[in-house]
Design a protein around this nucleic acid. Structure first.
Lengths: 152, 152
DNA sequence: CTTTTTATTGAAAATCATTTTCACTAAATG
DNA sequence: CATTTAGTGAAAATGATTTTCAATAAAAAG
């Protein structure tokens, strides 16, 4: 089985440490929730699930952890069209993907079909646009809006 | 100079009427503000400008008008990354365009360079995705995030 | 024109996700 | 151990947006 190196556990303690932060029980609960779902959860939903893991976690800590992780580039904050933000791990087994967003139920569906072409085109656009507008591009967003199968 | 047909004034009264709504002074002020700017204004900013046209307009009316116009497809609500929504006329002289969004000052820069390719690709993606996911796509969003020239 | 219905209004109150404050605890460091 | 610094939950604050409500105005009906 080769070298017993990768134990499937990311070194979150080390990651936080690199940002002058500590790994705590609350943060661990939040990360565990994010790792354990394929959905795009709101802070409130994450809070509820995190409480099942560790009943001492407060909503404030959930918000603070999500913000920290976003700053660290480990979490993406998503806009599903309802008021609240939704979150997903940046480096998850899903890999790079885009979203279909249902404007009726606000569900977000991941897709990674065909996105190679999308990404390639975006990179070309990025190059031209950043030059023309003297704008340093760090990331992009592609989303399609419509009605999902459940809502038809 | 040809037939004196198009007087550059859209028939807003008729548009509202088609939706069982009335054209009012407040709504007219909001529309005038939207027509008179190239920026992406928040409800609050629109309110302030609308008050200069008609001091009787209330903030509530501004919100209600923007919502109505959005439902009518005449206004697009934009997410610039700060909390508040920003608005632009759907059918303005700008034509179809996408946005560069500055993550520092939240400025939104319109661009319509190169978007023909973007739109063409998106249409292909739409066709494939709507089939695969049984998802009726009504609109798309492309945005690039980064730092604008002012903020460098 | 008068009555009746229906859309619209502004102000104030309510909502609700997110942030901040604050006093306290726990980890790291000397 | 002592000190500094990060992290905490609860409660209060914030701020954009919505809702409520009583009053008004336009349109439709008679």
């Amino acid at each position: 089985m080769g070298r017993g190196n990768c134990h499937g556990q990311e070194n979150w303690h080390g990651k936080f440490h690199g940002f002058g932060c500590r790994m705590t029980a609350g943060r661990e609960a939040v990360i565990t929730v994010l790792q354990g779902t394929k959905d795009h959860l709101s802070a409130d939903e994450i809070f509820i699930k995190a409480r099942r893991i560790n009943p001492d976690v407060g909503l404030t800590t959930v918000y603070r952890t999500l913000e920290r992780l976003s700053e660290m580039g480990e979490v993406h904050s998503l806009d599903s069209g309802d008021k609240r933000a939704r979150f997903e791990l940046a480096n998850n087994e899903k890999g790079h993907h885009h979203h279909l967003v249902c404007t009726k139920c606000n569900r977000m569906i991941d897709y990674d079909d065909f996105i190679d072409d999308e990404v390639k085109l975006l990179q070309e656009s990025e190059k031209k646009l950043s030059k023309k507008y003297d704008f340093t591009i760090n990331s992009h967003l592609i989303q399609f809006y419509g009605i999902c199968d459940n809502c038809k």
